[in-house]
Write a protein that binds this DNA or RNA. Sequence first.
DNA 1: CGGTATGTTGAGCCACATCAAAATGCGTGG
DNA 2: CCACGCATTTTGATGTGGCTCAACATACCG
Lengths: 244, 244
Amino acid sequence: MKSIESSPLTRKLSAFVALSEVELAVLQRLHQRRKSFAAGRDLVHQGQSEQSAYILAAGWAVSYKIQPDGSRQIVDFQIPGDFLGLRSVLLHTSDHGIEPIVDIQAAEVFVSDLLEAFAQTPRLATAILWAVSRDEAMVVEHLVGMGRRDADARMAHFLLELGARLSLVGMGSRAGYACPLTQYHLADALGLSAVHVNRVLRKLREDRLVTFRNGLVTIENYEGLVELADFDPAYLDQTGPLLK
Amino acid sequence: MKSIESSPLTRKLSAFVALSEVELAVLQRLHQRRKSFAAGRDLVHQGQSEQSAYILAAGWAVSYKIQPDGSRQIVDFQIPGDFLGLRSVLLHTSDHGIEPIVDIQAAEVFVSDLLEAFAQTPRLATAILWAVSRDEAMVVEHLVGMGRRDADARMAHFLLELGARLSLVGMGSRAGYACPLTQYHLADALGLSAVHVNRVLRKLREDRLVTFRNGLVTIENYEGLVELADFDPAYLDQTGPLLK
DNA sequence: CGGTATGTTGAGCCACATCAAAATGCGTGG
DNA sequence: CCACGCATTTTGATGTGGCTCAACATACCG
């Protein structure tokens, strides 16, 4: 039972629905077929039609799209408890690539497993629909940032969102978190040049808001950052299970 | 039976799963509680926690976020067969507003209806998960456009995507489609100023690619547009049912 | 037939890109 | 323990796509 509760996905979903023993067991069964992948080697290639999805158990991954001109847009970063490639499976086409940023552990999930799980407990289907919706909400926030926030606010928002997500799975706090991303990652995620990312980070550091250095994000002034970013974590936090 | 098949949502989902009689009936039941809403009056307010979602039956709607500085970012436009506010219901918080662009007809759906439907046919849950994933894929494309495409390509991509979506529900073709959007809508969707949208449209018109005028989009050079936009409709089209 | 929403065009400016180069850190093999 | 190579970070100089401000044109609507 302890091991069941410790899965990051279970933790995440439990914030949404109060899961029964049976549902926890079904969820746990999805975590069989544990695999390891090395950093930097694509897990899903852009363009290929993929047959299975994964649940990230440990490590960080990035999903991105390469443009024909060679530039890269990072769509999102995945942390433990997140699905990898679920969209690719459902749409039966991978419009994006997924690459482990560090060495990762992930559980392989077939569509058939999902269907089976849904048949056993429809509430789990709803819970996963919730998780997918939450992912979409993050992409939407990301989109809004690109369209209507300047570089400083974009960066601030990004660092805060990441912090909130990590906190939910016990990997961070308001004071900061460990973060293996490079400034190139930030640039490709935020639609900026790496050069400009560096200047923005310097500014945030000089303004004593946040420091991004040596794989460590240190938040010096949480309220200040929230204000600069206009950050509202409503879509990430759940105040309690919505479905009894 | 004829009336069942004619629902735009049914049409869309049928492209993904071959639905049985039972599933069609369950889907049809979700379309009870038909309501009308007037153009311009918010259906969902940003910030309120909403209790029900809708399936759009006729007309166009827009989902958007207002920033504290008053600027607006349009996340997506909804056309018949699309869900309205499903994410708000699942996340139990509305991070965005939804406004009918013209007078619309929509069927109200409660969470409980969905849960019930899922319990009856898990395949329907998968189908709806597909629809949500497809929405997410569109937002992702939108995101990529904002981050890594210039204004011309962004506009071209947008017009092509919209055309493809409309074609799927029988409201457009490669030659063009009717479109009630203003240049302000385009500006807020694409993260541009209305002034610049106007200039971009002029350029596309002068280059004999596409004309946007009087609520009518006329595509004069489909291939040219596809090339400019780097448009790949894989994520919108389904070549056939994926789930037998 | 005036009012309000939308579309069109010009002038000037700024946030961020690009190009270039140096500084720093770090893993690896000798 | 050093030296080399490579990835990453940092800083400066210069260019530009798209913004803002300001008019005016057009179309629809009661």
